[in-house]
Amino acid sequence: MKKLLCAIVFCIFVLCGCSGAKELEELAYVIAIGIDEGENDKLNVTFVTAIPSNISSESGNGKPVSCITVESENVLSASVSAGGKMNRNIDFSHCRLIAFNENIAIKGLGKFKKTLLNEKSFRPDTLISVIKGKTSDFFNNSSSAFETNPAKYFELMFGSQGSKNAVSCTIKDFSGGNQSILPLADKEGVNSCVIINNDRLAAVLPENKVAIYKLLSGKKFQSYMDFENDEAVLFISREKAPEIKVDTKNNLKVTVTLYLNGELIAENKKLSHNKYTENIKAQCENFLEYTSKELKCDILNITRLTRPHFFTVSDYEKYNPTKKYERAEFDVKIVYSDLKTGERNLKL
């Protein structure tokens, strides 16, 4: 038996050889992809590939990445011709960023969704962003700013959740629903966000609205907020995730309770604490009204919260929460506690 076994094993291996194996250096690892408009409805796709010998050498001479721009109908076919130019096969498995030009986002990103989902080497957690101006320029300009590891650079730039004015979006978030919110960057870096509704760019959110979005969506958050023209600065952090309750009796009624911790950092003018919470509350309600009535976009994905209110899918679809959301009533409550040792839970 063992002889037969050995015979089979060795036959198969000798006959088939090392099928499918690829040495590391046969591949070009793409770190970021930029997609611009081209002529005649074509795309200009920029591939940022790593040059490992420059990245790991200590002297640091030579660019760590090379950018190649190819004109093509589609991202994957572009990767083939880019691979031809570089004499290597393009590999997406370490790609960190896919950046769309603003104009492309306005035209519609729907056609990219399936490509990004279906190509195995794209990770579901690859970051997606929108860039003002040409992406190729953006990459060429920022390549000088790269430290040792360009992949890390993009991760820090587009993936960080902590800072006030940035959100991050991955392929999974982007292709999962009809609405998504992408970071918007220009030459200086990320400073605002865009809302994508039904695959098209619907609006650009200014900085302060992004902060409100982050508060409402329950993302990890801590930031400084200014009131009354810099007279008072409040350090805000999230105590726990916001509670969102929906009432589906007649019209959709949404009640959001935010739990916030805060600390007054600078206070030139004496203001009552209620003032801050009122302000935040007003901003939140404003944001919700703006997105639902004006943009008709359920950016916080509130409609899915109505699902437990129904027994079957057909009931849920009959109720049509997406339509109902556009006429929904909003109520925001804020539970604020001061961030102070000893008196932490003192309610105001």
Binding site: K172, R304, L305, R307, P308, F311, T312, V313, S314
Partner: peptide
């Protein structure tokens, strides 16, 4: 951490 348990409702799905 990436699960969304609201997807498990409505509990009777496509009907009893």
């Amino acid at each position: 951490g990436k699960l969304d348990f609201y997807m498990l409702t409505p509990v009777f799905g496509n009907g009893i």
